[in-house]
């Protein structure tokens, strides 16, 4: 008697969550796959009475043919491949350094966590302001009022100013700013996880290394990193997954034009592509692109897991 009463009760507890999940999670999965494979699908056409959509990979082909798609793919991959190693390495160095000091550690930890609690777009605007050149560029005689704080620092050290993100700026200048911003944003989480991992390493291994007269760099390379490898793997995998979904950082810096004034959309990423397709009411294409993105993420994650099997020691 108790058994069946419990069962029935359990389902009541679960009902709200399951109902919501069915509508907003399960159905979308099915539907997205469905739409991806219905050629040229769009709601507008569907409701307009055209019920005959063929199943096929037409959407995928269309997506691949889009010039924008190649740009987005390129941007996404580049950003990922560049920012993840840099931010992981920096986070590791910071975490190791923090682990080695006692005074000021709490304060520094708090400081390093700050970027996490910020609004991605809001601080993106601050970065834009830092790299921004105030004045009008793109004319024959640029009228510059101030070259922005970053350029000021460069000029202070004897260099010449760079057009980072304004009208007429170069692709790599834009990317540079983006990379700095994304790494800045990615550090807190990585530092937190890596520092937590470091603090759980048994101190006796370090004492043994001291007895073995191990130089500091060797302690880091042969002892700390291997013992920390599960955490490092976790941080890299989540870093890649997050990296492939970069979008808001770009909006933060460039605004919704996703690029400098003379080259809008230059820095668009896969996620941006999906939303663009959606905005143009090409749901089929958007779904196809989303599936492609998912496929890439899955692939990269699997590769990462394979690599960690070999390199990670538990």
């Amino acid at each position: 008697m108790v058994e069946s009463k419990q069962q029935w009760k359990a389902w009541i507890y679960l009902a709200p969550a399951i109902a919501l999940l069915l509508v907003f999670t399960v159905w979308p999965i099915i539907n997205t796959v469905r739409m991806a494979f219905l050629e040229d699908y769009s709601i507008a056409l569907a409701s307009g009475g055209e019920a005959s959509f063929r199943f096929g990979v037409g959407n995928f082909v269309k997506v691949a043919e889009y010039q924008d798609f190649v740009t987005c793919l390129k941007n996404t991959v580049l950003l990922c491949v560049i920012t993840v190693p840099i931010s992981t390495l920096l986070a590791l160095l910071v975490a190791v350094a923090l682990n080695n000091i006692k005074p000021l550690r709490k304060t520094l930890q708090t400081i390093f966590f700050l970027p996490y609690v910020t609004n991605s777009i809001a601080i993106g605007m601050v970065f834009a302001a830092m790299f921004n050149i105030v004045g009008s560029l793109g004319t024959r005689r640029p009228l510059i009022q101030t070259v922005g704080i970053v350029n000021n620092v460069i000029e202070f050290f004897g260099g010449s100013y760079v057009n980072w993100i304004n009208n007429g700026s170069g692709y790599w200048a834009n990317m540079f700013v983006l990379i700095i911003y994304i790494v800045w944003n990615a550090l807190p989480f990585k530092i937190l996880i890596l520092l937590g991992g470091l603090q759980s390493v048994n101190k006796q291994y370090y004492e043994a290394a001291k007895v073995d007269s191990t130089p500091r760099w060797r302690v880091l390379w042969r002892i700390t990193v291997p013992l920390l490898s599960p955490m490092i793997a976790y941080v890299v995998i989540t870093g890649f997954i997050g990296g492939f979904k970069e979008y808001t950082s770009i909006v933060g810096i460039f605004g919704e034009s996703l690029g400098p004034a003379h080259a809008p959309g230059r820095l668009n990423t896969m996620v941006g592509f999906i939303y663009d397709a959606l905005a143009q009411h090409h749901q089929g294409r958007a779904s196809a692109a989303a599936l492609i993105l998912f496929g890439i993420i899955l692939l990269v994650t699997l590769v990462n897991l394979q690599v960690s099997k070999k390199r990670v020691h538990y």
Partner: peptide, 28 residues
Amino acid sequence: LEFKGKELLFAGLLATMMIPGELFTITN
């Protein structure tokens, strides 16, 4: 609480965590 299919349901839930949010956004 105990109920039939608890493990299966939970595993299913966890599986959905792996899917990037963008996939849901379109249909939603």
